[in-house]
Amino acid sequence: MLHTRFTELFGVRHPIVQGGMQWVGRAELVAAVANAGALGFLTMLTQPTPEDLVKEIARTRELTDQPFGVNFTILPTITPPPYAEYRAAIIESGITIVETAGNLPTEHVEALKPVGVRIIHKCTSVRHALKAESIGVDAVSIDGFECAGHPGEDDVTGLVLIPATTERLRIPVIASGGIADARGLVAALALGAEGVNMGTRFLCTAESPIHDDVKQAIVAASERDTDLILRPLGNTTRVARNAVSREVVQRLHDGGTFDDVRDLVAGVRGRSVYETGDIDRGVWSVGQSQGLVHDIPTVAELVSRIIDEAVDIINGRLAALTRR
Results as ranks from 00 to 15, higher is better:
P151G: 00
T4E: 05
V160W: 12
A240T: 07
D213F: 15
E85D: 11
A188E: 02
Q47T: 11
I306M: 09
L159T: 06
V98S: 08
T236M: 11
D143K: 00
V249I: 04
G19K: 15
R241M: 03
T43S: 12
T7P: 08
A89K: 01
R59W: 12
Q18M: 10
L191E: 07
G178E: 05
E92P: 03
D213C: 12
A187V: 00
A129Q: 00
S176F: 14
M1G: 11
V311C: 11
D65K: 05
V12L: 09
R251Q: 03
L252T: 02
G178S: 04
R262F: 13
T237Q: 14
G40M: 07
L321W: 05
R281N: 14
V30P: 08
G256R: 01
P80R: 07
R231Q: 05
D254E: 12
L53A: 08
Q288E: 15
V30N: 06
R281G: 14
A129C: 03
V98Q: 06
F258E: 09
D154A: 11
A132K: 12
P105D: 07
K113I: 13
L75V: 04
G195Y: 10
I97G: 01
T73I: 10
T64N: 03
S304A: 08
D213Y: 15
R251T: 06
M1N: 12
L63D: 00
A188N: 01
A188M: 02
D280W: 15
W284Y: 15
I307F: 00
V186D: 06
A139Q: 02
R26I: 09
G184M: 05
E110C: 02
I279V: 11
L169N: 14
T4C: 03
G267T: 10
I97E: 01
D52M: 02
D225H: 12
I119A: 04
D312V: 15
I97Y: 04
L63C: 01
L228R: 04
I119Y: 07
N315S: 10
R238W: 10
I78V: 05
A27Q: 07
A88D: 04
G116I: 09
A217Q: 08
L42K: 01
G20N: 06
I90T: 05
D278Q: 15
L53F: 05
D155W: 15
K131V: 02
L159E: 06
C204Y: 13
D280V: 12
I307D: 01
A193T: 03
V214D: 02
N197T: 02
A217E: 08
A58C: 03
L2N: 06
G234R: 07
S141R: 04
P114T: 00
V70M: 02
G270H: 13
R231V: 10
E223Y: 07
E223A: 11
H150M: 08
A89P: 10
L189Q: 07
L45T: 12
L185H: 05
I179R: 01
P82L: 09
G149Q: 07
A175L: 13
